[in-house]
């Protein structure tokens, strides 16, 4: 009920009616795996530097028609963030602004469910921009591969089990080939692979083996 009301409110708040498609179920058997690289981890202060997204149709990852842009952040890149995603100031200097790339991204994702690693963070970052443009936030359902992984790995774990939800740890556990990390598109592709593998495990009712790990690091970071 609450969800319905929120939707109604958003519908009437939509600034640009040509974006009504964001509310329509297109009846496609597709989801979109998405990843944003940002200047930092604080959605209020930090900005998007790049966005990568791929559509997943049933068991296929549509890498041939991927979405991949580097944009110019509103603020200067900090040394800290450059170290993580290796996008330097000069690379984004002539990049377009996120606002100018947003229409293409919104058309790309439509109302398809969004799949991501720690997807709530990416959605928060995007919503900041979507709100600025359309007066609404994204209506898409979200699927977090962390949750899917937790479900297949730790949901039956005895209390006290150390939990490792790091991106690299999930990749390794699922034996997925490592791509160069902290590239938005590569991360979106890796996430898409995680999604398909985990969905398959679930459909077969299979679980991932737990090894007694002694020293798993505390908690994930993007």
């Amino acid at each position: 009920m609450l969800r319905f009301i929120k939707r109604k409110l958003a519908w009437s708040a939509l600034k640009d009616r040509s974006y009504e498609f964001l509310f329509h179920d297109m009846g496609l058997d597709e989801v979109v795996s998405i990843d944003c690289e940002t200047t930092g981890l604080n959605p209020r202060k930090d900005d998007i530097v790049s966005v990568g997204a791929v559509k997943i149709t049933r068991n296929l990852i549509r890498t041939s028609a991927a979405f991949n842009v580097k944009v110019k952040p509103r603020k200067e890149l900090t040394a800290e963030s450059i170290k993580i995603h290796q996008i330097t100031k000069s690379e984004v200097a002539d990049g377009a602004s996120i606002q100018s790339e947003l229409p293409a991204l919104l058309h790309f994702i439509g109302n398809r469910p969004l799949v991501g690693y720690w997807i709530s963070f990416d959605v928060k970052m995007l919503n900041k921009e979507v709100f600025r443009m359309l007066g609404i936030t994204l209506q898409n359902p979200t699927i977090d591969v962390c949750d899917m992984y937790y479900d297949r790995k730790y949901s039956k774990a005895p209390p006290g089990t150390k939990i490792d939800l790091r991106f690299a740890a999930i990749l390794e556990d699922l034996q997925l080939p490592p791509l160069q990390a902290h590239d938005a598109l590569n991360d979106a592709i890796s996430t898409a692979q995680m999604y398909l593998a985990l969905k398959d495990l679930k459909s077969r009712g299979a679980y991932l083996k737990r090894v007694r790990n002694r020293d798993a690091p505390a908690l994930p970071v993007g």
Partner: peptide, 29 residues
């Protein structure tokens, strides 16, 4: 630029005997 990626679970048929294929499959893992 033209590549897609496909996923198959254990026991799933990628190409049936006598079937055609729209892709060449190169195994990643």
């Amino acid at each position: 630029s033209k590549l897609d990626i496909g996923y198959w679970g254990p026991g799933q048929t990628v190409i049936p005997q006598g079937g055609g294929a729209e892709h060449l499959h190169v195994i990643i893992k």
